[in-house]
Simulated scan of single mutants.
Amino acid sequence: MNLKDVNVFLMVTQTQSLTQAAKRLNTTPMTVSRRLALLEDELGQRLLHRTTRAVALTAEGEEFLPYARAMLEAERGALNLLSPQKSGAAGNLRVTAPSGFARRTIMPLLPALLANNPELNVDLQFSDDIIDIVGQGFDIAIRIAPLRDSRLVARKLADNPRVLCASPDYIKQHGKPTQLTALSEHNCLRLSSVLQWTFITDGQPTSISVEGRFSSSNVEGVRALCIAGMGLAQLTEWDVREELINGELIAISLDDVQDQMLAVWALFPTSRHLPVRVITFLDVLKQAMQSINMSGAP
């Protein structure tokens, strides 16, 4: 298989345009189209739907996409291995992560990561939505919500239980709820996409609808209002670790339910031939998270 054809395919999926792919590859749209046709003929499958306005992956193209990336990564890895003057991670690392986690945990790592790997580029996307990392060309997704996509390869990075919390001022004024039903008596600050809060009863998840005067699409908005004493919030431990440690927020335990145990996960399109840049990033992230765990627990 001609890796130049594979590279053209990847560039088209990234730009979603034959013309833009041709510009980035310093060639012509006709050449791009010809190389795609050669690749599809070799595979015996149509990889892309092409119209005059847009380009989209077929089902076969989506299946081939992670293998195409792996092939080019293997080529780059071999070249780096045989080039003594090159060291460290290289290439474009594309990461998507929840906004709060990205700002607090990932961003502080990037200056040293980039300084230690001069040939590495990082594209970090802040998103609280579930991103199609295969279709959008991400190397890795960090997620703290329950996993739903079984096509992806998941690696657990740390435990991350849900935490019911409030500020000391709010508790002083309104008291602590002690039963699940008591949440209806409080102003509940919630994420816009989360209509119910989940706990564990007798080993099984149980959810309750909550109401309040504020909701946000972003964890940071909910956390800020909670710190300001405007109500209760249910976030995850990694969202409020700093505030629980310094006393800005207080964890609340209910007598009739337990907190739901979640985790911080790293998701990949495929487990085959993880690029050096992904392995390097993961090592740095895991080491930082372990250091945070050791420095203090809520």
Score class of each variant (00 low, 15 high):
L3H: 09
G247N: 09
R277Q: 09
A224W: 09
R46C: 13
A70N: 00
E243W: 06
F64N: 02
A141E: 08
L120Q: 06
M71E: 08
I200A: 07
Q173G: 07
R46W: 06
Y170S: 04
A251Y: 06
N121H: 08
A89K: 00
F214D: 03
I292L: 12
R190H: 15
Q125K: 13
A115N: 09
A115C: 05
L38F: 14
N117Q: 03
L195G: 13
P205K: 04
A228P: 00
Q16P: 02
F199K: 00
V219M: 07
G247K: 13
E248H: 13
I142F: 11
A22F: 05
P269D: 04
G91F: 05
L147A: 10
S167H: 12
S87Q: 13
T206F: 15
Q125H: 14
T28K: 08
A78T: 11
R162M: 09
M294F: 13
D255G: 03
A89P: 01
A141Q: 08
E248Y: 14
A68D: 01
Q179W: 09
G135V: 07
A90V: 01
L235C: 02
L79E: 13
N116E: 14
D202Y: 10
T96C: 05
A141D: 07
R241H: 15
V163E: 15
E242N: 08
L81D: 05
T28D: 02
P298C: 06
P205D: 01
I208D: 02
P298S: 05
A74M: 06
Q85M: 06
R241T: 02
K176H: 11
L93S: 03
L274H: 10
R155C: 12
S291E: 15
T19L: 11
P168K: 02
W265P: 07
T15K: 12
T105D: 15
M71L: 14
C226A: 14
L152V: 03
D128E: 06
